[in-house]
Each structure stands twice: as structure tokens, then as C-alpha cells.
Amino acid sequence: MRQSIDIAGLGLLLDVQGEALRVAGHYQDAAPELAIAMELHVRVEADFAEGRQAAADFPAFQVEAVSDNCVKLSRYDAEGTIHFADGEPLRADFVVAPREVALEALLRILSSYTLLRHGGLVLHSSAIGDDQGAHVFSGVSGAGKSTIAALLRDYWPVEQLSDELLILRRGPEKWELIVSPFLGSKGLAHGKRKTLSSINFLSQADENRRTELRPAQAMSAMCRHILSYAQDPKSGELILELVMQLVSEVPCYDLDFLKDASVGQVLDLAC
């Protein structure tokens, strides 16, 4: 089975051999003219995970650099390599168990490697959008990413764009948020784009307070929350370069917030 998918404006060729395994229905087919930026060749083996220790589904990959242009990835239900070559699509060859989450995990990691090479980052965060653009909320597990997005969606004239993972990509003139098709984002407008207005690092507190971060502070905070794999030297360079560009071009804040909808006031959302 071969399928071309659009992930944040990049074409993914998915080639599945062996047992049937498909991506979730909310992935969108790529337009015929969209260039292929990544190829994922998968052989599905029914007994691949048998006898292997089960582990967390995301991300749970062991990554090891084989050479400057190749990394080996493994987890209990998937194993393979990703090859990088300048000017060519990234190529991933994997053997996987017949599990949708294994295929999903591969899509995420391959996308994160490919996006890096096309000016994009995958970020653990929620987000809302209004007429002006998108506000992103990132933080450690339990910081309130889903809570703040849901509160603002319910009480302010904004739409929820993400609750788990989103894609930030540098366009010709500005940074954009792109709603990712990855699992965990059900009911959202996959593929939707919004100009990025702000990035906010969350802490729950007894008052709402928003403090702009210096680039070094923002860089440190941002690097903790991007889905990144820097086991090959090129990827490390690209991550730092992109994050440095992002935090110098988009306002970043520490956002202490009360667990109610009043936080919309410090975000200057329109009523």
C-alpha cells in the first residue's frame, strides 16, 4: 500500500508492506504537485513485538547515530533507520508490529527530522487562535496546557488549535503555527495555519502574570519542549539555529495563571 500524505506542507510517501496497517483517517492526502520530502518504508510483521518488553508509546525510541547521515531507532514495536542526504527526501526503513501507535510514532519522529530541514519544529504544547493569530502554551506535564486552551475556548471568542503537539514553521515572512495531524489532536482543524503571536511557558499560580523572557531564557525554555532528536550533528545545529531564530522573532513569556478564564485578560484577547 502506498499513500502520499501532507504534513505541514511537506509530502510524505508512506509505503507499507506485509500486514495491513494504515494511518488514522484524519491524515490528509498530499496534493499531486506537493514535493515528497520524506519517505517511510514499513514492513509490518505480526510477531515483531512478541517477547519484547512493552514500553511507553510516545516517544520511547532509542536513537543511535550510525554515521553523520544515518540514525538507528528502536522501540519495542518498531526498529529501523533514517538516512539523510542533502537535497534528497529523508528515507526511513522500518520493521514494525501491526500497531497504529507504532506507525504514528514513526510519523512523528520522521516528521520532526524532516521539518527541521525545512524550517520547522514540533512542539509539545496547546494553542488557541483569534483574528490576530495564535497563542501557544507550553510547559511540563501537569502545567495546564490543555486546561488553559479549554478555558479560553469556552469563555473567549477564540478557537482551540492544539492540545498536545503542534508544528511551528518559518514562512518567507513570519512564523506560522500549523495544526498537526498527529494522534491526540482529535476534532481539531488539521493543517490549519495561523500566524504565531506569542509563546507562553505555563505555571499555575494564585494570580495571572505574564513576563516577557529574554532570548536566552526563552531558548532554554523552548528547548525543553520541542520534540527533537539531536544524535546526529546536523540535527543539533539545525535545532539550535531554528530555536534561536524563533525566540528572536516571536515574543516569548512566562505565564503564571489562575485556573479560570480570567487569564484571557493578560493575553490581551479581544472580548
Binding site: 536513537v63 547515530a65 536566552a216 532554554s220 528547548c223 525543553r224 539531536a230 543539533g236 539550535l240 539555529e241
Partner: peptide, 25 residues
């Protein structure tokens, strides 16, 4: 280390080490 990547921002170096995929400030 040729496998590490670094940038200086605001007078502080940020270095990513390949072996453990860690950011060092």
C-alpha cells in the same frame, strides 16, 4: 566535540550533546 552543536545567545552558550540528546546552558 565535533558531535556537539552550540550557539551563543545573550552571552550564554547553549550546547546540544549528541550522545544523550541533552541541552546544556
Amino acid at each position: 566535540n565535533p558531535l556537539s552543536a552550540g550557539r551563543v545567545v545573550d552571552g550564554l552558550a547553549f550546547v546540544v550533546t549528541a550522545e544523550d540528546n541533552k541541552l546544556h546552558t
